[in-house]
Design a binder for these strands. Structure first.
Length: 473
RNA sequence: GGUCCCAUCGUCUAACGGUUAGGACACCAGAUUCUCAAUCUGGCAAUGCGGGUUCGAUUCCCGCUGGGAUCACCA
């Protein structure tokens, strides 16, 4: 009885989409696609206090950029599916019905203990170093009639709960360790633990793929499935992604954790996804670069890692550079680079392409492109200190003057420029390295740039000589 | 603190009892050279510790140590 594969990514719209959440979404997506199943986007907005106005939009925009499009669920226009709505605040009737059913059969109860009372009981237990597990017997009074102002707690039965995870193996928890936890809050909204189980059942989710922070609450979920007489899904918990120092989970203090920051910085979605796919998974070979299609073809849960992975942005930069250098045609590259450069640069497309051919290999992130390429579009400011760093000003000026008259008469092609400039270098009795250094700085204002003859050729005679003349006196 | 999880180069990871412990990023050196980048070649670098089991442990078992997760009317 192989159930159809249906998986969901179920973030909470409480801000931006975290890079760790993207890895979870990606693994869900890859698993769905590799089994010709459905990838569903569900929004868990049961905490009214943490609601953020553009939270939903942030999530959709992020997944859209990455190409992780859901088959069902919330989207710009909700994607069709038989199990909607896909946002929990619109599903309150379902949670209420199941909770009432549980109360009616004595498996759950209205709880009259206030948060303050509960907190003091806990503090007491902590002070006497006793473990604390909340049970109905601790209720200050027995509520017999339904009272919608009160939260509903699940009455945990005696015994133990066993469940298993596809990557971690078998778990067993004594029920005596589990609190009578709240399933419906006093405001009528369900808690995560409850809504999650009800929705996964109703939406016929076959595999629950999520972060490992949920391992410790999975026993509660398993219990709920059983008490509600639902079939349990297959659980797959992903290893955490750690901060660069490896000391904690990746968080805001470690820099960019909002996916859209990676878009701004000029990472390609394919590169980011490739990088993320290798955090906690590998295909067993020495292959490092995988196209989205290859990822789908090769992804399997058997090779998901148990141990945590450190987020290494240096490796991400390398991978992005690989994509930028080898995975895009010139036209595609230009399309990608457009948002990061002045529009005017593209007015003369042939010129832009000739510049791009010189600079493409040195761009690791698209947001570096403007700085790297601008020497071909704007007259550089030449710092005389830099220009005269290796030789005195008089010598440098003489070199530049000689160069101007020498180049005035030749054709600006790479080979002719090389012959002329090397010849002149000899005639001037200059060290080639120092001579070329002066020319490079005069031309670009930089010490690091493409090859000298390439710069001359690309800039052309008129512009080159203009720049040299600016530095000749 | 209770419960649970994890453990190979600095980092991502391969090796499902027998390998000189492999690859990649980073780093270092060399080649190329007018600088940077790219490219190519080479190098440095790991099985946390202690017991078992076994002819033989990175691999299986136990303990320790270290790290992490979780213990909300948050998800």
């Amino acid at each position: 009885m192989n159930k159809a594969v249906r998986v969901r990514f179920a973030p909470s719209p409480t801000g931006f989409l975290h890079i760790g959440g993207v890895r979870t979404a990606l693994f869900n997506y890859l698993f769905a696609k590799s089994h010709k199943g459905k990838f569903i986007l569900r929004l868990e907005d049961t905490d009214q206090e943490r609601f953020v106005a553009d939270g939903v939009e942030q999530i959709i925009k992020s997944l859209d950029w990455l190409g992780l499009h859901p088959d069902e669920g919330v989207w710009y226009e909700e994607k069709p599916g038989e199990h909607g709505p896909y946002i929990q605040s619109k599903r309150l009737n379902h949670y209420g019905n199941f909770a009432q059913g549980l109360v009616a059969s004595g498996l759950a109860y209205y709880s009259d203990i206030s948060p303050e009372q509960l907190a003091s009981l806990k503090a007491e237990a902590l002070a006497s170093k006793q473990p604390f597990v909340y049970q109905q017997s601790m209720e200050p009074s027995n509520v017999t009639a339904p009272d919608t102002a009160l939260p509903i707690r699940l009455k945990i039965p005696a015994g133990s709960t066993k469940w298993s995870d596809e990557v971690r193996g078998d778990f067993s928890t004594s029920n005596s360790l589990i609190d009578d936890f709240i399933i419906i809050k006093a405001d009528g909204f369900p808690t995560y633990n409850f809504a999650n189980v009800v929705d996964d059942h109703l939406m016929q989710i076959s595999h629950v793929i999520r972060g490992d922070e949920f391992i410790s609450s999975t026993a509660k979920h398993a219990l709920l499935y059983d008490m509600l007489k639902f079939d349990r899904p297959t659980w797959i918990h992903l290893p955490p992604i750690l901060s660069p120092d490896g000391k904690r989970k990746l968080s805001k203090r470690d820099g960019d954790v909002n996916v859209l920051d990676y878009q701004k910085k000029g990472y390609l979605p394919e590169a980011l996804l490739n990088f993320l796919s290798l955090l906690g998974w590998n295909d067993g070979s020495t292959q490092e670069i995988f196209s989205p299609e290859e990822l789908i073809a090769k992804f399997n849960i058997d090779r998901i890692q148990k141990s945590p992975a450190v987020f290494d942005s240096v490796r991400l930069d390398w991978m992005n550079g690989e994509y930028l250098r080898h995975k895009l045609t010139e036209e595609e590259f230009i399309e990608h680079i457009k948002p990061y450069i002045p529009a005017g640069w593209l007015n003369d497309l042939d010129y832009f392409k000739s510049v791009l051919r010189l600079d493409r290999d040195r761009i690791k992130r698209l947001d570096e492109a403007k700085y790297i390429m601008e020497i071909f579009f704007d007259l550089p400011k030449v710092d005389s200190k830099l220009l005269y760093k290796k030789d005195d000003a008089a010598t440098a000026k003489q070199w530049i003057a000689s160069t101007i008259s020498e180049l005035d008469t030749i054709e600006f092609t790479h080979s002719k420029l090389e012959t002329a400039l090397r010849g002149l270098s000899e005639k001037l009795e200059a060290q080639t390295g120092k001579y070329f250094y002066v020319l490079r700085v005069a031309l670009t204002g930089r010490t690091e740039a493409p090859g000298l003859f390439d710069i001359f050729e690309t800039l052309g005679k008129q512009e080159s000589l203009k720049r040299l003349k600016n530095c000749a006196h």
